[in-house]
């Protein structure tokens, strides 16, 4: 049986609202950072707010709300969290390595040289960080 949003107990409403607001605010802050931070490499940090506790908070709120509203455990949101967490590094590395490749090719900024590459640096040289 499914209750409407107004029927759930107050304590549950407070907990759900808390997690929902935390998740939504972190995602918003991440989006603001994505817009405002100056360089590409700094910008890629901002959306991780949304993919860590942004998604986490909204996921928890959804799990609590639907578990209580339908009087049975509703846990499948956890899969969204798991898959977002596991797949984010793939896109991040793709974007980051594309940016590194472009910056190295155009010699933009102070991007570290390719580590241990035989064409550009000595194999045993320590890349400057």
């Amino acid at each position: 049986m499914m209750h409407s949003a107004a029927d759930i107990p107050l304590w549950a409403a407070v907990v759900v609202a808390f997690f929902l607001l935390v998740g939504a605010s972190l995602t918003l802050i991440g989006a603001i950072g994505f817009l405002r931070l100056p360089t590409f490499y700094e910008r890629i940090h901002a959306p991780t707010l949304g993919t860590s506790w942004g998604i986490g908070g909204i996921m928890l709120a959804s799990m609590i709300f639907f578990s209580i509203a339908s009087s049975r455990p509703v846990l499948h949101e956890i899969l969204i969290g798991i898959f977002v967490t596991v797949t984010t590094p793939v896109t991040f590395m793709l974007l980051a390595r594309a940016a590194l490749h472009r910056d190295r090719a155009e010699r933009n900024g102070n991007v570290p040289e390719k580590q241990g590459s035989s064409e550009e640096a000595e194999p045993d040289s320590v890349p400057s960080a």
């Binding site: 991780t48 993919t51 967490t85």
Partner: peptide, 13 residues
């Protein structure tokens, strides 16, 4: 995964 999902550090290569 740990370093990417921790905001503030990004795994490049």
């Amino acid at each position: 995964i740990i370093l990417t999902s921790t905001p503030g550090s990004a795994w490049l290569e």
